[in-house]
Amino acid sequence: MITAERKPIEDLINSVSSYRRILLLGCNECVTVCSAGGRKEVALLSSALQMHFMKEGHPFEIKEITLERQCDPEYVEELVPYIDQADAVLSMACGCGVQEVARRFKEKMVLPAVNTKFMGASERQGVWAERCAGCGDCVLGSTGGVCPIARCSKQLLNGPCGGSGKGKCEVDSDIDCAWQLIWDRLKALGMTEKYEENIPAKDWRTGRGAGPRKIVREDLAS
């Protein structure tokens, strides 16, 4: 999923303080799963902002709506009846959702309430970790199912570097050395000979290298 984290409250207060009526938008997809911007987080942020502005004696109204998906035009369309009643939108969706709302409602200020972080997986309750860098040309088949691009601090395709110690990365002892994980997996798979196949320099055009990307499925595209 795409993971995100709520921006500091102070930043959010500053970003909405010049408005009186806010449409606070959640999204029922990734940000719900990573507890950053689903219905619950919308309600909590709404409560916090209202209390803050009550304390300031600043009239402040919040309308809370959580869309099924904020990155899909069909769902964003559901905002039409509400958009005019708001001075600005504060979106708790990932950057994709914020942009979709901004694209649809060109004359409405749309502010991000979360920092979109990475594509990751849940390690345990309340902990998410980066897993995929979206390079557009998956190498997991040759690296034992562990991505060196997303998970090695130096994105080494032929690691590990000399800073790997006791399974951890030199950058931070909280980070697992991706190449230790790769090696362990290759051993478990009985594929250690795979390690010595040099992975050639990557063609980054499939990633961000060739500018913003698009997927077109001719069979589906309208």
Binding site: S153, N158, D172, A201, K202
Partner: peptide, 26 residues
């Protein structure tokens, strides 16, 4: 490959790592 920027005087810098040291040798 070089020490990670985290350890230096520009920890905010982006590390390039377009290629790695093995690929650089090649």
């Amino acid at each position: 490959s070089g020490d990670h920027p985290r350890f230096g005087d520009h920890p905010a810098a982006a590390a390039v790592h377009d290629i790695d040291s093995v690929q650089a040798v090649d």
